[in-house]
């Protein structure tokens, strides 16, 4: 028996090797193609946005886009294409969202990382995950049918479509994001540092605010910046509850329109392929893309540049 398996393997070798030689050559190529698809996606996005935006600017002047204070694309006789009302609507929503998400997200992060026992953490973290996994259309529904009526009880003059309600709900939506990313940053602060401060008689709160928060600051800021980017790109909540009235305003009780909800509005309408309105969604999309891209790059820069090494 000894040597017979050896012989068998030898007999199979020829066939095995010629086949595996081909496979070993082809497979890396196929996998590389897979990897390149992600690059092509980025190129596709950039290419699409640039080409269609250029077409848009051949019909509408760049100067008008950046200086006009009015966005009335549907005025057939004299449409206005000034991006500022959409940007202000977007930033208004983002601002409200941050006012909700930063305190609650950060508070939850501090509680989870500094106070909570393992058991509590094991219960709360999945709940945050569930909250993060709820589709945005559901949040939109919640904003329109629950938050807005509740707010109307407080502010009777509040119209059905307003900036406040979707802003708050976008904030709720990104609480889990800030909470979990900040908590990661805070938990990675070594326990030895905490014990050092506790050993000197500092309270948990003092440790959290004076020791852990500063040490984890870059991670926390990065999480907030990412959350801002997420809020800027949020679409369905503002589409459902924010209205469709592009307005250069800081009044949170008014109906507004964000960049994203404008794009949806056009895609739902009957603006045909090739019209100026059709191309305008790409210009708006480009603006949106640049906003979020910058935010993401800033977040990456912060977390890379200021990474704490322990």
């Amino acid at each position: 028996m000894q040597g017979s398996i050896r012989q068998m393997i030898k007999d199979k070798k020829e066939k095995q090797q010629s086949r595996s030689k081909i496979v070993e050559k082809i497979v890396p190529g196929i996998l590389l193609i897979c990897a390149i698809i992600s690059v092509l996606t980025t190129l596709g996005i950039v290419f699409t946005l640039i080409v269609e935006t250029i077409t848009f600017f051949s019909q509408v002047s760049v100067i008008e886009y950046f200086t006009s204070k009015d966005w009335y694309p549907f005025f057939e006789s004299d449409p206005d294409y000034g991006i500022w009302p959409l940007i202000s609507g977007t930033l208004l929503i983002t601002g409200i969202a941050m006012l909700v998400a930063v305190p609650f997200g950060l508070g939850a992060a501090i509680y989870l990382s500094e106070y909570a026992t393992d058991r509590v953490r094991r219960i709360i973290k999945p709940i945050l995950e569930v909250l993060a996994g709820i589709p945005t259309i559901v949040y939109g529904f919640f904003a329109l049918t629950f938050v807005t009526p509740v707010l109307q009880n407080v502010i009777p003059s509040l119209p059905v479509f307003n900036a406040l309600s979707p802003g708050i709900v976008v904030g709720i939506m990104i609480i889990p994001m800030i909470a979990s990313l900040s908590e990661d940053a805070m938990s990675s602060v070594p326990n030895a540092i905490r014990e050092g401060a506790l050993g000197l008689g500092a309270t948990r709160f003092e440790v959290a605010v004076k020791v852990v928060l500063p040490a984890a600051l870059s991670g926390i800021i990065a999480s907030v910046v990412l959350a801002i980017s997420r809020a800027i790109g949020e679409t369905m909540i503002v589409t459902v509850a924010g209205g469709a009235t592009p307005k250069l305003t800081l009044d949170v009780t008014e109906s507004i329109q964000t960049m994203t909800s404008y794009i949806v509005q056009v895609s739902l309408g009957d603006a045909g392929f090739g019209t100026t309105i059709y191309y305008s969604i790409y210009a708006v999309g480009m603006t949106l893309f640049l906003f979020t891209l910058i935010m993401n790059l800033v977040a990456q820069y912060i977390s890379r540049r200021f990474r704490e090494e322990y």
């Binding site: 398996i5 393997i9 199979k12 070798k13 066939k15 095995q16």
Partner: peptide, 8 residues
């Protein structure tokens, strides 16, 4: 594992 990858 070995025999299989060698074709047995």
């Amino acid at each position: 594992y070995g025999p299989k990858i060698h074709g047995i």
